[in-house]
Nucleic acid binder design. Structure first.
Length: 232
DNA sequence: AAGTGTCTCAACCGCCGCAGC
DNA sequence: TGCTGCGGCGGTTGAGACACT
């Protein structure tokens, strides 16, 4: 949270007070946000329009959820990120009650957390797609193989407890198995590693056109996820 | 108990696209 | 057709909370 301050134009910045929240909320609920630039003047706020808009969209708007993301939401975010890239607002539109800012923060947090495991370029490995037929024949196992041509961030698929030793791979092919745990958290971790971070780094990314955004509602997305992640 | 590192959340900044003129 | 103002978006940063040593 930033400390409140007033700039040379008398525009207040930083953390919002209860009184300011109250003023903004009551004004927008009553009159709507017909013009964000003029709104603060009419609402009696010493803020810039952008600040008011951001406060409303990210905090005061009715229907917003607070607190941590649920497992379902985390899975959905991972999936949407693979499809949409860093289009936080588009992602937020498909997750009821969540703002682009929240999703962005969440993704950045996970990116930072996972990026610590990125090996040197000579140690690049990648994850084979879990949905491949081979993997389907061996459920619960994640095969890692070396490749110098692939995105290094994909190597974060080696989870902290099992596959870090795969980083010693040189030119010759190395295969290792990382046992995938049964718990949800681990699966979510896998989901982030297997594609999420890859797309995070690889902007611009290729959108999966086999997927129809227009008709994909939150429910439908979750149903689709349930087929892939039947653990819920 | 104190110091340090990490996480989380909220807010700001700058850029871009679009509509109106 | 170019200019301007506005809203919206994504990236970044600041600071408190929390965990760890």
């Amino acid at each position: 949270m930033r400390k409140s301050s007033v700039d040379i134009n008398g525009v207040k910045k930083g953390a919002w007070s209860e009184e300011e929240d109250s003023k903004l909320r009551s004004y927008v609920l009553r009159y709507g946000h017909w013009n964000w630039r003029l709104l603060p003047k009419f609402a009696g706020l010493a803020r810039c329009g952008k600040s008011c808009r951001l406060r409303w969209v990210n905090y005061l708007k009715p229907g917003l959820k607070r607190g941590r993301f649920t497992q379902e939401e985390e899975i959905l975010i991972a999936k949407l990120h693979r499809q949409l890239g860093n289009k936080w607002s588009a992602m937020a539109a498909k997750i009821p009650g969540r703002t682009d800012n929240e999703i962005k923060n969440y993704c950045h947090t996970h990116f930072k957390k996972h990026s610590k495991k990125v090996p040197s370029p000579s140690q690049i490995t990648t994850c084979k797609n879990l949905e491949s037929s081979e993997d389907l024949q061996a459920p619960g196992k994640l095969i890692l193989e070396s490749s110098e041509t692939l995105n290094p961030t994909a190597a974060t698929c080696d989870s902290e407890d099992s596959a870090s030793s795969s980083q010693s791979a040189g030119a010759e092919e190395v295969e290792e198995e990382a046992v995938v745990g049964e718990n949800c958290e681990r699966r979510i971790e896998m989901d982030f590693n297997d594609g999420f971070l890859e797309s995070f780094w690889g902007q611009p990314f290729v959108v999966d056109t086999s997927y129809s955004h227009d008709h994909m509602t939150y429910t439908a997305l979750m149903e689709e996820e349930a087929a892939i992640y039947p653990f819920t």
